[in-house]
Simulated assay, not measured.
Amino acid sequence: MRRAVCPGSYDPVTNGHLDIIERASKLFDEVVVAVGINKNKKGLFSVEERLEMLRECTAHLPNTRVDSWHGLLVDYCRQNDIAAIAKGLRSVSDFDYELQMAQMNRELSGVETLLMSNNPVYGFLSSSLVKEVATYGGDVHHLVPEVVFERLKEKLAERS
């Protein structure tokens, strides 16, 4: 079975993330969408909320499952018999960073990394930018799935 992981913080998941996940699901028998747990980082959404949103957003993809991990991604890959990491690239700066990570991951474990160019429609899109624009009342409904948009509005209303 060809298995890949699409790792990220997904705080929150965007249409750009989903584009990469959907495309990876066509290339692999199983895609694990994995939320990284970083105790030192305070996200807008809890890990549990992110997992729940991702499950809703990927429910139409029968060969995906959602999970979380803590520590080195390559250790998670070894423990789950995952041979590849699938990541999206928006820019040259993404490439520089992801290339170093891919080389380190291959050196540590032999896990390969598939770097996929993003859909140009999402070239500017990031979770951080979505949160910032939404915080100041900007309309982000076309940048995230509907379920995420609704939860984002609720979360920001709670905070104010």
Rank of each mutant, 00 (worst) to 15 (best):
P12M: 06
H17V: 09
H17F: 07
H17L: 10
H17E: 07
L18F: 02
I21N: 01
R23Y: 00
S25D: 02
F28I: 10
F28Y: 15
V31M: 06
V32K: 09
V32D: 03
V35T: 11
V35N: 05
V35G: 04
G36K: 07
N38Y: 07
K39R: 14
N40Y: 12
N40S: 15
G43L: 09
G43Y: 08
R50V: 08
M53N: 05
L54Q: 05
C57Y: 09
T58S: 09
A59P: 00
L61S: 11
N63H: 06
T64A: 03
T64Q: 01
D67I: 08
S68A: 13
H70M: 13
H70Q: 14
G71R: 03
L72K: 06
L73Q: 10
L73F: 08
Y76P: 03
Y76L: 03
C77N: 03
R78L: 15
R78A: 15
N80F: 07
D81L: 12
D81P: 07
A83L: 12
A84F: 13
I85M: 07
K87I: 10
K87N: 08
S91W: 05
V92K: 11
D94T: 10
Y97W: 09
Y97K: 09
E98Y: 00
M101F: 08
M101G: 05
A102P: 00
M104Y: 08
N105R: 05
S109R: 05
S109Y: 04
G110P: 02
S117K: 12
N118P: 10
N119C: 10
P120R: 10
G123F: 10
G123E: 14
L125C: 05
L125Y: 00
S126P: 04
S128M: 00
E132V: 00
E132Q: 01
V133M: 00
Y136V: 13
V140C: 02
H141S: 14
H141T: 13
H141I: 11
H142T: 15
V144N: 02
P145F: 10
E146K: 14
